[in-house]
Simulated scan of single mutants.
Amino acid sequence: MVDNALHHSKQRWRTPPHSRHGFRFHFQTESGSQEISRAGEVFHTALQVLKNRAKQKYKRNFTASELLSWENVELLAELSQCPSETNPAVCEGSHHSKYRTISGVCNNRQNPGWGSANTALVRWLPAEYEDGEGEPKGWNREWLHNGFQLPPPRSVSREIIRSSCKWTDDDYSQLLVDWGQYIDHDVTFTPQSISSAAFWTDVDCQKSCENVLPCFPIQTEDSHCMPFHRSTPDCYIRSGSDIQQALQRQQLNAITSYIDASLVYGHTPQLQSALRDLSGLNGKLAINDQFKDPHGRPYLPFVAKTPSACRTDHQGERVECFQAGDSRVNEDLTLIALHTLWLREHNRIGEILKFINDHWSPMVVYQETRKIIGALHQVCDS
């Protein structure tokens, strides 16, 4: 079911840009994250299939924890190809390293998965799902909460945004907002579902007004719907916790949760290598090989896979999406500018370090510069 919906989604994504509705990005992550996302979708879809079968047979609703033992859960996770928990023993060889791992694994050697890429976001408060396991509030539109139906989310948004007072602020500029978005991209990336088609009915989430996973459209005041689909789930919480909590839907964080400049350097070894200037043997990051600014300063490189979604002027010269450590770099011009500044700063510092320490290898120059850039991100955010 999951793979069939993904197949239909890919077919829709291949349609020519001029026939698509509006300009949109698909916020997907690296291939490793997509494999884990698929495993999570398979795991939770299988849970729903089991609950539906039990409901048909016994004519009542069930939770997955009523139907499965820990042995069942572990088998289902294995069949869904969920990744296994990282054993602290794998970190024994890294105790001499003074550099953060690119994926965040083993940065905490006793709990190697803490803060690493492709793990579930940590909850500060218990989850509150309508069915106790995975359906968000508002999924069943007729359900009552404290005796009342939930108001349409669009109406809530309009009411909160409406304000009668406006003022100027001399202490902050627009950059406060832009930096907030930028630094958020250093610590969280919850990707959307790998499919934009419903797993059960193959309905296109862009056109549906029905809540069918992963479609979760937003109703408007004129009874129309804004297309929306849910974020991808993590597979499951490791054994040792309460089984009911373990089977609740958890949201995946595809990147490291450390402030470590991962949006400059990436969060996988493959992406890290793709962003480096390996041929230059100088520890620098790769730059755009076609364009520079009027002062000769470099731009970010273009993405390797073209044509990309960033061309908006069909009459003029094609300009592809830029590539950085985080795929959301192309969301707006301010993010592109900030990413460009940090690319230039890495290469500037790396050049100075290489001049001072001519005996350093390109890897040492790169890692020492990366450590400085990571520290600057932490200082700027404090």
Rank of each mutant, 00 (worst) to 15 (best):
Leu79Phe: 14
Gly374Leu: 00
Gly93Phe: 03
Gly104Met: 04
Ile102Ala: 08
Ser80Phe: 12
Ser382Asn: 12
Leu150Phe: 02
Leu341Glu: 10
Leu150Lys: 03
Leu76Tyr: 10
Asn288Cys: 10
Phe189Ser: 08
Ser223Val: 07
Asn288Gly: 03
Thr334Met: 02
Pro269Met: 07
Arg249Phe: 15
Gln81Thr: 06
Thr340Ser: 15
Pro83Trp: 05
Lys371Cys: 02
Val177Arg: 12
Phe216Asn: 06
Glu35Thr: 11
Arg38Gln: 12
His339Trp: 00
Gly32Arg: 07
Trp342Leu: 07
Ser155Tyr: 02
Glu71Gln: 14
Ser69Ala: 02
Trp70Lys: 05
Glu210Cys: 02
Trp167Asp: 11
Leu76Val: 13
Glu320Ala: 13
Gln11Ala: 15
Val49Pro: 04
Pro151His: 07
Ser94Pro: 00
Asn347Leu: 00
Cys321Tyr: 02
Ser19Gln: 13
Arg230Val: 08
Ser361Cys: 03
Thr86Arg: 01
Thr268Tyr: 01
Cys209Gln: 00
Ile255Trp: 09
Tyr172Cys: 07
Ser223Leu: 10
Ile287Gln: 10
Ile36Asn: 08
Lys57Cys: 07
Thr268Glu: 05
Val122Tyr: 03
Leu67Ile: 09
Val156Thr: 14
Gln174Val: 12
Gly93Cys: 01
Thr63Ser: 14
Val2Met: 02
Gly283Tyr: 12
Ser94Val: 05
Glu142Met: 03
Phe25Gln: 12
Ser97Met: 11
Val203Phe: 07
Arg20Pro: 02
Asp242Gln: 09
His145Asn: 04
Pro362Gly: 04
Ala375Thr: 14
Glu85Thr: 15
Ser9Asp: 06
Gln48Lys: 11
Pro17Asn: 06
Ala117Met: 08
Phe216Gln: 04
Ile255Gln: 05
Leu47Ala: 09
Leu50Thr: 06
Cys321Leu: 01
Val156Gly: 02
Gly325Lys: 02
Ala375Glu: 15
Leu353Asp: 01
Thr334Ile: 01
Phe43Glu: 01
Leu275Phe: 03
Thr369Pro: 11
Leu67Gly: 10
Trp124Asp: 12
Leu247Cys: 05
Lys305Pro: 00
Ser279Val: 11
Ala304Ile: 10
Glu74Gln: 14
Gly113Ala: 10
Asp202His: 09
Cys91Glu: 06
Glu351Asp: 11
Tyr265Met: 08
Glu85Val: 15
Asp277Trp: 10
Ile356His: 02
